[in-house]
Amino acid sequence: MTSEIPAEDRKRNLKKDLPLTLGISACYLVLSYFLVGYKTDQLVLISIFNLLYYVSAITRKFIIGFSIFIVYWIIYDYMKAFPNYNYNIVHIEDLYNFEKSVFGIEQAGKLLTPNEYWLLHTNSFLDVLTGFFYLMWVPVPLAFAAFLFFNNERRNFLNFLLTFVWVNLLGFVVYYLYPAAPPWYVQQHGFEFIAGTPGNTAGLVRFDNFFGIELFKSIYSKGSNVFAAMPSLHSAYPLIVVYYGAKGKFRKANIFFITVMVGIWFAAVYTSHHYLADVLAGITTAIIGIFSFNWLKERKPLANFIQSMLKLIS
């Protein structure tokens, strides 16, 4: 651990940092305005960042480390400015036919995709359960990262966040190489490609209707790209949590993590947000990302970066 910096010196350092943090915040707002337009989310983000940076030494260290996740969020948001369907053909009918041929379920003499099968067998219990599972894909990784930080597992904290972002970047590459429509798109629009199609709650609308709310509607109205179903990164995230949970020997917590992971995998298909092929691709992306990151972190550039970040947050 680093020695404690005297209060007066700390105040002087923070005053020096003020132009930098305000400048970064202003540049982010300006760039965001021109790329994706103004949104209140952007003000919330920079407010949280600046508040945590200046409120105390421990929150400053936390937000510096957590800025790795913020970078991911900004990249994801900016994808709206560069729709993947502008760069490659969107796969709609061929992906649907592949899903049916490999994972098809026969019912009443007709071959159905798993999504179509569950669309015929919905019930309120599964609607609510899958909705709760799908809500966990963000809070669980964030809470796990916060636990690692405040439990003084700073190296695992950084490795977890960097793995999370690395897996996302790998997934983003596939998004642009292989734009793919989700199952709900076929259910609502058939096999015709319609550029600029807005996000849709699909089967999660049943969760909203059950509770009389518009939670998922508000979430999916902000989606960056409808044609980014392959791979399912929703399916990748919980696997990363389970991996680092196992490394940290959080045995009881990992029972919860594994339950959430399997629940999200099922929910993705049940709610028609992803094909089973998308889920398997997401799992594969997570595995590739974890192993490749473990290799990269032993190489000098990334090892030096991690060591520099550790000094800042320890």
Rank of each mutant, 00 (worst) to 15 (best):
H91D: 13
N151P: 02
V241S: 08
F150N: 07
V36P: 05
G245I: 00
L22I: 11
T2E: 15
S218H: 08
I46F: 05
W184C: 02
F216Q: 09
Y117N: 11
K100Y: 10
V173I: 13
L18G: 03
L158V: 06
I288S: 06
L312R: 11
L20N: 13
F250Y: 15
T284V: 12
D208R: 01
D17L: 13
K247V: 01
G282F: 01
T259K: 02
F191T: 02
F193L: 14
P231Q: 13
P183K: 05
H234Y: 05
T197H: 08
N225Y: 10
N304G: 01
T197P: 12
H189P: 01
V279H: 09
V30E: 06
A229C: 02
V140F: 05
H121G: 14
V262W: 08
I92N: 07
T2S: 11
V241H: 09
L14G: 05
S56F: 12
H274N: 12
F172G: 00
I287D: 04
A108Q: 09
T113S: 02
K222N: 12
P301T: 10
Y85N: 08
T130N: 09
P238M: 09
N156D: 15
F160H: 08
Q307P: 00
L14R: 08
G199M: 08
A81H: 03
Y176E: 14
K311M: 05
R154D: 11
L302M: 12
T59I: 04
I240Q: 07
A229P: 04
S56P: 04
I64L: 14
K11R: 14
F149P: 10
D278H: 11
Y96K: 06
V55N: 01
W184I: 14
L112E: 00
Y76A: 14
A286Q: 06
G289C: 05
D94S: 15
L43P: 06
K222D: 07
S235R: 03
F193M: 10
V140H: 10
A143P: 04
F149E: 10
Y85C: 11
I58V: 07
H234Q: 13
I313E: 06
V262R: 01
H273I: 07
T271E: 14
G282V: 01
Y28I: 05
L177E: 00
G104C: 00
S67Y: 07
N156T: 14
A195F: 04
V226F: 13
L112M: 00
F305M: 08
Y178P: 06
A286W: 03
D278F: 11
F144R: 06
A228L: 02
N13W: 03
F164D: 07
F172A: 11
R251P: 01
T122Q: 15
L169T: 08
M136Q: 11
Y28S: 02
W73V: 13
Y178K: 09
E106K: 12
L126E: 07
F98M: 12
H91C: 05
R60G: 00
K300Y: 13
A7Y: 10
F172T: 11
